[in-house]
Design a protein around this nucleic acid. Sequence first.
RNA 1: GCCCCGGUGGUGAAACUGGUAGACACGCAGGACUUAAAAUCCUGUUUGCAGCAAUGCAAGUAACGGUUCAAUUCCGUUCCGGGGCACCA
Length: 1147
Amino acid sequence: MDYDFRRIEKAWQNKWKDAEAYKVSNDSPKPSFYVLDMFPYPSGAGLHVGHPLGYIASDIYSRYKRLKGFNVLHPMGFDSFGLPAEQYALETGQHPAETTEKNIATFKDQLDKIGFCYDWSREVRTSDPSYYKWTQWIFLKLYNSYFCNTQQKARPIADLIEKYAVKGAMPKTGEMIPGRHFTADQWNAYTKTEQEEILMKRRLAFSAFGEVNWCEALGTVLANDEVVNGVSERGSHPVIKKKMRQWYLRITQYADRLLQGLDTVDFSDSMKEMQRNWIGKSEGAEMEFSIGDYSEKIKVYTTRPDTIFGVDFLVLAPEHVLVSQITSAEQQHAIDEYLNYVKTRSDRERMAEVKQVTGCFTGAYAKHPFTGKPIPVWIAEYVLAGYGTGAIMGVPCGDQRDFAFAKHFNIPITNIIGDAYTGEEANSTKEATLQNSDFLNGLLMKDAIAIAISKTEELGIGKRKVNYRMRDAGFSRQRYWGEPFPIVWEDGVAIALNENDLPLVLPHAEKYGPGPEGEGPLANITEWVDLTPNPSPKERELREHSEDQKEYGYITSTADEWKNTLAFAKQNRHHQTEAEEILWELVRNRNISGYKFRRQHPISGFIPDFVCLEQKLIIEVGGDYHNKKEQELFDVAREKWLNEFGFEIIKFTNQEVAEDINKVERTISQKLEDMQKKYSAQSPLLRRGGRGEVSSARRETSTMPGYAGSSWYFLRYMDPKNDQTFCDRKASDYWGQVDVYVGGTEHAVGHLLYSRMWTKVLFDLGLIGFEEPFKKLVNQGMIQGSSRFVYRLNWKFKDVSGAMINPENLPTIFLSAGYLNSKSKDVQKLLREEISKIVNDIDFDIDALSDSYYYDPIHADVSMVDGLELNLDEFRKWRKGEFETAIFICENGEIKAPFSFDGPGDSVKEGKFICGSEVEKMSKSKYNTVNPDVLVEKYGADTFRMYEMFLGPVEQSKPWDTKGIEGVHRFLKKLWRLFYDDVKGKVWSDEKASDAEFKILHKTIKKIEQDTESFSYNTAVSAFMVCVNELTDIKCHKKEVLEQVLILLSPYAPHISEELWDALGNEGFVIDATYPTLEEKYLLEATKEYPVSINGKLRASINLPTEVNQHEAEQAVLANETIQKWLEGNPPKKFIFVKGRMINVVI
RNA sequence: GCCCCGGUGGUGAAACUGGUAGACACGCAGGACUUAAAAUCCUGUUUGCAGCAAUGCAAGUAACGGUUCAAUUCCGUUCCGGGGCACCA
């Protein structure tokens, strides 16, 4: 019986599925364990061999923990919002939802073939409304929270509002600063708009103006990596910085807690370091310098207040607000010129020429806060407006950039550290002793820092200050395929939707191009965006007269329709029924609870009898004609339609109105009251408690960035189906933190930082019980692709007359790598000869060209290459035969062409075409991807799993190479033969195992357990190989031993383990077995082969009892022949005995 | 420039807190079985020198130096590769 992996794997995958073997319950007496993978973006290219590396690692760990008696949560889902799907939609017109759906199906199919133990019933997809409902919900939590500086945590914004209303915002010390401080009375007197503006400055999710990369030609906002050298990546159009309203997360408030939290988690040092760098905390002081007669002072930020007496100049960022004020008349022209120069420089340029010194003197002088010495004030682009205060103090003897600046502009340099400053370069250490520094004289610089700060604070010229490099996180994207913001802008004020109104479903789009004014594609879906209620007749008049602003109500489509409806409505108003007249008298003039009603007011094509737009309440009075059959149907349809737009309808019959108008009144006002309650607080579109109507209401047209959905998905897995809350507190308390999180380093500062922040906010608000999401992080290395290149001759040659050769009629010629690698000048001559054989009628000059110029490297698909040798037949068929007629010049100069010519001809044709190779990122566009399906098909999932692990340590990046997979496959076949013999069939027996056999088993148990715990899977695989090799060597076929080995192996190779486990006659799945217990007694040895070194060099090896003591060992060693030979009769100087390890004799 | 991580046979790699460097596998070479192939199995495989051989000696973990009875492991300097940050005051 052969190892038929195809049958086995399929069979067991089905059995697991049928038995729901991987379904996990939130209710279990077992201890919980949570193993998580970073969920993938389902790209159209499908899975490549790089993806499963981490998945296999986590799968092994999950299965291992399960065997160890844990209730293991090991889910998988899809990060399915994102740019690639949108880009694809732009190109092909296919809706991202469709392509995403398709891609996910492919991914799942591929994943299932590898035999992962995911509980698919817990799958999440970030683009699914039932998921992003809660992303939006958490966004609202962020929006409706602020960071309380006293408690250092998030609190509901309602608390802040209450505080403002009762106590205002008063300064702790000092005077009130207008715009920042206010009394409770002032707060209460502010308009809603003013209050909202103040609150926006505290909300954890907030909107503000920020700079974006704006490309006029493309009419769109670009991400940083879509901008290359100041122009757009697509089309090379100019890109400028433009201020636009954006959303942000106030992550800077969490900087300190994010920093502290790192000490509580088990991440790699480099990962922690990266996060620390990103947060970029620096401690220093802010100091104030007064300038001439101006009341305003220049604030500088410095980490080196100890060098305050070495200040020779101040430098402001060119964008600094004070620049225009302090510039002197003489310098005005020079400053203007410099500012113009700066404007032309992109960030990239500024970065590219780091060493270039530019700047301009403002003509102003600041006063040194201690000495009173006048200090020139400059501006220079090396000072960044966005960091610190946008101003620095220049200390040339202590800072290399300041030094270069002073030298360049001939500013005299003050030396405050004596000999420690050479005059040749700045001394930026903190080790020198200060001189020339008044009260700091004689102090070491690093000690002087604290003293300088306290003195500064004492004199009121500055204060201690902590700065962070991290900026608030941009949270809006001008894109389509993302979560819409649950925000409506009413007259410029952001109003959040009610939780009840979620999810705000992403509307279907037909086009994905940018909207006007840099807005996202959603801005083009007018009927979705514009929630402005129908205008009053007066406003309507106004609007109709303005030609370029054709607005006809928010649900109305065409101008004509609207005109007709209007006319019809007007007509209706002149033909009121009696009941309508009575009702109108009742509701008009804000008669009922102060709500304004309109009669016969068109809402799109419909004309309700009465409507209160504030609460979206419609009153219909039944006329006789409503009894007709078709009218009834129409009414139903209309009601449904209006409901969709949030309108509610109450109906009265003529009779009711006529008979008891009081009852009618009560009904209406009750209804209004109910509706106000129901849609209380912040629901948009006049459903607010307020009385005023709005003149414009537009939905936010940006969408959330990719990291929104991924910032909390690990919580959703715990309670994926819950439609009451994002994740029940019981579920999150049961599972707690993610015990092991496996993923790539590329998310070090993005995803990991954001999800850590979200977790902290949710924790602060009491919604979950832990404040770090991931207890342990395992970084999987990247599997790189090994690309193959062919080199196409570039026909940009001049012929001998100097004219360019026209390549169009010339054949495509490919050069073999070795041909090019022989870097000699001869290659060109040789090549010229070869080409002349092919193309007889042109004579050209190749010698003049540099070798880098005459060929283009082209990626060849790795599947057509065996090692480095290109399969020419396949290559000719590739890309729909694009290179069908190409000519290949092989390694040995042989020419292979699809036609015959008078070449070297008759000689034996065995030239190989060798490709160039390079290690690059695995990507479809580089044709270097390897699909796991192919390998699974050829060797089986178990082989594939074990091979990926065998490749090397999980954390290590390595180029993909298939050549070793045979070895792993052989191992599994060898394992199989312990159970089944080719000839004899089944060979296992129930015999009692010997100690020697148990020793092999328990040695393996020990090693596998250790290695699995420490994610050292490559060595674990090798331990399995050793085990099987040894069992084979001693012909052990005993069930007692083998079935234990199967349990050990099942996390690594679940299918074959399951098959053999079953064959041995066991009940149930091996995945539910109990992990073998290590019994040390089998590992004890009576004797040990001790290596004996002389002076650290291994000379002999002697067998000693395990329980030997140093004296006995010494005697045995000295009696040894080889050792005696080395001792040459002398006694050893020293005898070192490490029990159980080795012996070293020093002579 | 700064901060991390790494550098070991022809290749992927192993070596627990300093204690037999190269486990395991690939590749290669030789052999067995076979008409042949596939599959399987066996032997060898760091380098140099000596030997018919078992084996012995020497060198060897990027380079140099140090600590130690003993260094791939700890320390210092330099070189190379990978990743991150970058006029951050």
